[in-house]
Design a protein around this nucleic acid. Structure first.
Length: 211
DNA sequence: CCAAAGATCGTCT
DNA sequence: GACGATCTTTGGA
């Protein structure tokens, strides 16, 4: 059977609509804002998952104490941050959860945007199988480790391209929403950097993880 | 309702 | 050897 490729609101989510690689070549701070409202499409053999990005955090790299690439240090884990923008940076946290970032900027500049929450659009049945304990749909995707679990993202997808035919972003048409800037979550150790408003979310969206 | 602790291991020091 | 860009469960008020 053919998987559904429409949101039911006249919006096509086929790979022809996907954002080009150039979209990801900008700095983390501007990319973090632009990613809001974009639709993440993940196509597997037997199903399709899609969700709208509603909450992001910018990690502007070398100058940011909270970034994994602070001071330009290169380790086996963060190496992919130095790639050209448009690929995934995935890592395990607390031994069990996976965090997902989108590498941006140009090759050699280790900036990224952390995706904190999405709004499920397609494939909620699959997401439920991936997150069997979740009852309320809201908790499938309203947090960085929740949505990655529901989407089945794992460390093996590290470095995967976001501009391929099975994983890509689609812009929506006109989108009217207010963007709220806030402090980032869980980086109190980062001193001054912790106070910068580098987290952005769509005002009023119920899948935002924290207000 | 909220605070506290447990889970669980790759990564860096 | 310590800890984390987190989430869930538990236990007390």
């Amino acid at each position: 059977m053919k998987a559904e490729l429409s949101t039911g609101r006249g919006l096509s989510l086929g790979p022809k609509q996907r954002l080009p690689r150039s979209f990801f070549q900008e700095r983390a701070v501007s990319t973090a804002g632009k990613l809001l409202g974009k639709i993440l499409v993940y196509r597997k053999k037997d199903y399709i998952l899609a969700g709208r990005i509603v909450e992001t955090e910018a990690y502007p790299g070398k100058s940011d104490k909270a970034s994994h690439s602070y001071q330009g240090r290169v380790t086996p884990r963060n190496r992919v941050l130095y790639a050209s923008g448009g690929v995934l940076y995935l890592y395990i946290i607390y031994g069990i959860y996976t965090c997902c970032n989108i590498v941006c900027s140009v090759k050699g500049n280790p900036e990224s945007v952390f995706i904190r929450a999405v709004e499920p659009l397609i494939g909620q049945d699959i997401m439920r199988k991936n997150s069997p304990r979740v009852k309320d749909e809201k908790f499938l995707t309203n947090g960085p480790c929740r949505w990655t679990r529901s989407f089945g993202f794992s460390k093996e997808m590290n470095q995967k391209s976001l501009t391929g035919k099975d994983l890509y972003l689609v812009p929506t048409g006109r989108q009217a929403f207010k963007i709220v800037p806030k402090k980032r979550i869980g980086i109190d150790y980062a001193g001054e950097a912790a106070n910068k408003k580098l987290r952005f979310y769509i005002y009023g969206n119920r899948f935002v993880s924290k207000l």
